[in-house]
Amino acid sequence: MLEESIQELESGSLARIASATSLEDLETVRVQVLGRKGALDQFFKQMGKLAPDERARAGKVLNGAKQTLEAALESAKRQFAEAALRIRLDGEWLDPSIPAPGPRRGHLHPITHIQRELEEVFRSLGFAVLDGPEVETEYRNFDALNIPADHPARDAQDTFWLANGDLLRTHTSPVQVRGMERLGPPLRMIAPGRVFRNESVDASHEHTFYQIEGMMIDRGVSVAHLLYFMRIMLAEVFRREVNVRLRPGFFPFVEPGFELDIQCLLCNGAGCPVCKQSGWVEQLGCGMVHPNVLRMSGIDPEEWSGFAFGLGLTRLVMMRYAIDDIRHLQGGDLRFLEQF
């Protein structure tokens, strides 16, 4: 009898829970059924009156009903809470396509990018990165590099002269002299920097441009070593294996001097307009450091030898990014600079 009543209460209450439409409905059910003085409590109170074996059986049913109802209430409440959260969060919709406020990251100059790349490559190969001033002495820019006063090579480098006889460096090579003076042999160094030539500016000529100079001095440095470093460097610059070739070239501060060509990267040597059908593109000047240059910096050419090279950084930057007008580089136009 009692057990039947309990089961009736249980199923009735489950139905009320299932049909509840709010947390308040559930609370009403909880108070009426599970609360103190609630319906279940009334049954518990009747338990004392039962015979022991009947009490045990009815108690089991009663406890079962209580647990079931409690679990059902809990679950229903959770569903209501989850639904409420869903509704609240749904109201918080944002448009992710609206641009984020605040300044964007700025851009480094394309020359900075390539220069840093090359600095990394050479530092990892044990080369120091050295600097020299923009204003140089005639001695370091010319004489110490085996370019005496009447040398025709001075013609080739139209120089900006200053009133006191100093000059704006025409190449980064004076930093070689500074490197030799400061660090002595053995020496591995590069010197990236700004150089100046007195010529009119047009799409392919600038009076201000950038070079990277490099030098290695040690015992027994050979042409084979020069070739090795040039190939490594250019492979890094162009991010692929490159074929290089040396041919005779004249620079007063090296002997022998070379022009270094790389096999055309566009046609792989087959010949195309960029390499003027030759399969090769002139890349840089280099050579074995002239003994006069070593001697002038206090290095004994019988004991030490070395190689040096000079690379047009500006030209490299223009090649890498396919820039067709050199004037962009110092034009300060953000529409250009923000592309890098």
């Binding site: 480094l108 923009e134 100046f196 110092q330 923000e338």
Partner: peptide, 8 residues
């Protein structure tokens, strides 16, 4: 900030 290079 975006980097510029100007003449000396």
């Amino acid at each position: 900030f975006t980097e510029v290079y100007n003449y000396s």
